[in-house]
Write a protein that binds this DNA or RNA. Structure first.
Lengths: 159, 159
DNA sequence: TATTGTTATACTCTATAACTATA
DNA sequence: TATAGTTATAGAGTATAACAATA
């Protein structure tokens, strides 16, 4: 993976602001979700920097791994990426040798995405970092609470 | 507020992808948090489009309302915005007459942010939309589950 | 004509560097 | 010298329009 994808992220040395009334924002799920997502993404860049994986490429690799032959259009709608933006990422991943594009024989407009052995190796290495990464991000919650949070998010989002 | 801040968002007519193995992503909190945040932000733009409020300006207004005199630096670190990016938003809000900047008498480098009556009126109108908006976004969860989700997010994030 | 993939491109968001004025 | 605010600007993410190939 190219190293330019590794971002610095916000400095983590900033302690929570004191003596401000934040009750309104704390009761705002959308705001709290944004902060939570920032926390996870910043932690991701630190944890997976060595592999050059970003949240987007990690998800792309995982879906292709579990669904070989998935077309770009399905991948885009699933990951909530616009097709042209996904195509740009796929172009980089293909020219770097991580994925392969096959034309479908049934419908020659359609493209079937596959991991190359190099791509399969990369996502396998990434998968080994996933458990400790999630544990670090969720460390402030008990094991039961972690399961509850994940379950509530899944019910909130009809995937 | 300027109408250019109203964004279309993703089409909501896309039904969840069927017959794909998404178990890995469903067990990935970071990915689910991203989807949840997208859902809330897209819903926000629809709900608050008439007022011209964005998630960012809503949060800015709410913090200044509850903490009159708060300096831009505190606001930036609280909302996880870089100071230069916040300044650009504050410039627009001030030239539109929603906020006011005062120089601190104790330290003339410091700026104290206040809402104008026009700004106070706008966030008050926004606040009236907040309850039904949150209820719509969280409709797939029971009232108890909604409270649990919010509590878990708060514990995850030491504000 | 409609659909899949793709390119080109514009816009928004987010980042760093450098400047000012005060301390 | 250090800090708060600001400006300028570059980079990443995300949006639409238009096109080619195929159905």
């Amino acid at each position: 993976m190219s190293s330019k994808t590794v971002r610095p992220g916000l400095k983590s040395d900033q302690q929570p602001e004191k003596s401000l009334d934040l009750r309104a924002l704390r009761r705002t799920p959308g705001f709290m979700l944004r902060l939570a997502q920032l926390k996870f993404f910043e932690g991701f860049y630190e944890e997976f920097a060595a592999l050059g994986l970003t949240p987007a490429t990690y998800a792309i690799f995982a879906v292709i791994r579990d669904n070989p032959g998935v077309p770009p259009s399905s991948l885009a709608s699933l990951l909530r990426l616009r097709l042209p933006n996904l195509i740009k990422i796929l172009n980089e991943l293909e020219s770097s040798g991580f994925i392969k594009r096959n034309r479908s024989k049934a419908d020659r407009r359609a493209v079937e995405l596959m991991l190359t052995p190099k791509g399969a190796k990369l996502i396998a290495e990434g998968a080994r970092l996933t458990e400790p990464y999630n544990e670090k991000m969720l460390a402030l919650l008990s094991a039961a609470e972690q399961r509850t949070l994940l379950e509530l998010l899944n019910r909130l989002l009809p995937l």
